[in-house]
Design a protein around this nucleic acid. Structure first.
Lengths: 332, 332
DNA sequence: ATGAAAGCGCTAACAA
DNA sequence: TTGTTAGCGCTTTCAT
């Protein structure tokens, strides 16, 4: 009861060799039904559980999946993480969630540390690090909501389309001057969203828009937006390129006595659950977050379990979800 | 460059034995300065990193900390997780974040799985499982924001006091009828919060209050609150026993055209960041979330690294933070 | 101060 | 169908 039972204990208890026990455990090779029975019994009486460490040391494989996120307090990532976690669990894997934070140093530390612990693979939603670093790694990797490199399997949604959806919608709403609170310049999905937006805007030269840059978190977006609104308040719509930023924009507006949507419309991006719980509820471009997490995990597991797929890319379509932050009180 | 270098490679490269390399790596036993130099050089040229798996197999120790949370999409837990993660990182540990979800089955799976992988210890913020299960485990465990058992080191805030703070504040505000949206009956911190609240209420028999039960997530709280408000709307205050629930209450109120704080005051519990980003900003009982996560992690690490502290308990004081959900527009 | 060798718990040839 | 045995990469006596 004290020291954890080993495979040898089981073998002894069952009166067979360790090899037989191992074969039974892994469903490999021949094991007679008689043997299976006895071993099974021995396992339960000894309350035996295989030591994954030892197993991994031999096989050089684990059931650990590393999930790297840039900021776990941005609600988008927990939603993603939950999907990843659920899918992994269903496939017998365990997720190691790492908050890589701001620095690429920490991100590297985690990758190194996990690799040393033989993480079977990684899902990466960060991009502090050069893609080259990942390519050299020679470990199964899937990029989620980020385009790391052509060579790395990737799951995203169509961010260009998302940007277009916003632009088209705002055009329909007959908006004249827009403030874009866009994401960091080195994040490709942020660029894509802007690109889609601008493509449509080119067709409507009468509509003006200003662009300011902000990280995706609440606080930063609030601060940056406040600064901008100090200059001009002459906007009738704001396009925040994440829902988290949109919340920051909401607060900025509120503190200046600007009413949403009466004075200015607000469109977010991501489709996180909290969006429906805000006042007003947030109009947004919804990504299929669960689906994306699920698909990325399946892809990674496929990769780990052998299928050498090269540069597979999955792109989901985003959807415009109109709620109250852009309509004057009309329920959806 | 391909296969990861092993300690043997380093030994060969440096012209010494593996034992010497090992001793140098772990700063144990005598190693001459000359040897140190050569080994160091060999390590860098080979880009060697020790295999933690193998190391753990021998030493039966790891640098993995398991953090079990019940629901990662409740913003309270990411904030806690971030503190845990940061502290662990500073001490050279890596955090495995597990979303144990609703079922105790899954929680057990994770614990089992992590134990097999030799997680050095656990921080548990869930309590689906009987404390006995944990006590039998014979692994360092710290309970965070939960009282699992007298025998398990615990970090919490004073939830009874928190409940009292709410009650006293509401009394001061001259409130007459209160709705309590309390947490699950089997969660002791939820019980404590209610207990503190009721202690004060006993001294004020003219104040009425109703109590309804809800899980801590947004959606549930919204639903339960809506149901209750179908019966009576005759409340002038709501005490939600988590900030997440409070958000649900906000939405419920809004959808019924009840204005906060004009028609009814709302007090939450936890002090999560989003509270300041809502409209109105949420009055709440703030727990020192970061401090709690930090302290729990330090406790666990101390436990792991030898100090056999028995039943240590750390209790932080919570603080009432008055914001706009209870004052009619008065900025703090 | 250093090296040889045993062993952590498991898997995977290879024999039998 | 089953057992023997050699590692996986590392730490740790025990000699030297």
């Amino acid at each position: 009861m004290n020291a954890l039972a080993t495979i040898r204990d089981v073998a002894k208890e069952a009166g067979v060799s360790v090899a037989t026990v191992s074969r039974h455990l892994n469903n490999k090779g021949y094991v007679s039904n008689d043997a299976k029975q006895i071993i099974e019994k021995a396992i339960t009486t000894l309350n035996y559980a295989p030591n994954q460490l030892a197993r991994s040391l031999t096989t050089k494989q684990t059931n650990l999946l590393g999930l790297l996120v840039p900021d776990i307090t941005n609600p988008f990532f927990p939603e993603l993480a939950r999907a990843v976690e659920r899918t992994a669990y269903e496939h017998g894997y365990t997720v190691v969630l790492c908050n890589a934070g701001e620095t690429s140093e920490k991100e590297k530390h985690y990758i190194r540390s996990l690799q040393q612990n033989y993480a079977a693979g990684f899902i990466v939603t960060t991009n502090h690090i050069e893609a080259d670093f990942y390519k050299k790694l020679d470990v199964p990797i899937v990029a989620l909501d980020r385009n790391l490199s052509e060579a790395i399997p990737t799951v995203t949604s169509d961010n260009v389309l998302g940007g277009q959806l916003v632009a088209n919608y705002l055009v329909e709403q007959n908006v004249k001057r827009i403030l874009c609170v866009r994401g960091p310049l080195d994040i490709d999905v942020a660029n894509d969203r802007m690109r889609g937006f601008e493509e449509i805007m080119k067709q409507h030269p009468t509509i003006q828009y200003d662009t300011i840059v902000s990280p995706f978190d609440f606080e930063s977006a609030k601060k940056v937006t406040l600064q901008q609104l100090q200059h001009t308040r002459d906007y009738d719509a704001v396009f925040a390129s994440s829902d988290a930023s949109a919340i920051g924009v909401m607060k900025a507006a509120e503190s200046l006595g600007i009413h949403i949507p009466k004075d200015v419309s607000l469109v977010g991006y991501d489709g996180i659950n909290i969006g429906t719980l805000l006042s007003p509820e947030l109009t947004t471009i919804a990504q299929p977050i669960s689906l994306m997490g699920e698909r990325a995990t399946e892809l990674l597991i496929a990769l780990i379990e052998g299928q050498k797929m090269t540069a597979k890319r999955v792109v989901f379509p985003p959807k415009l979800v109109v709620r109250n932050s852009t309509t004057k009180g009309t329920e959806l």
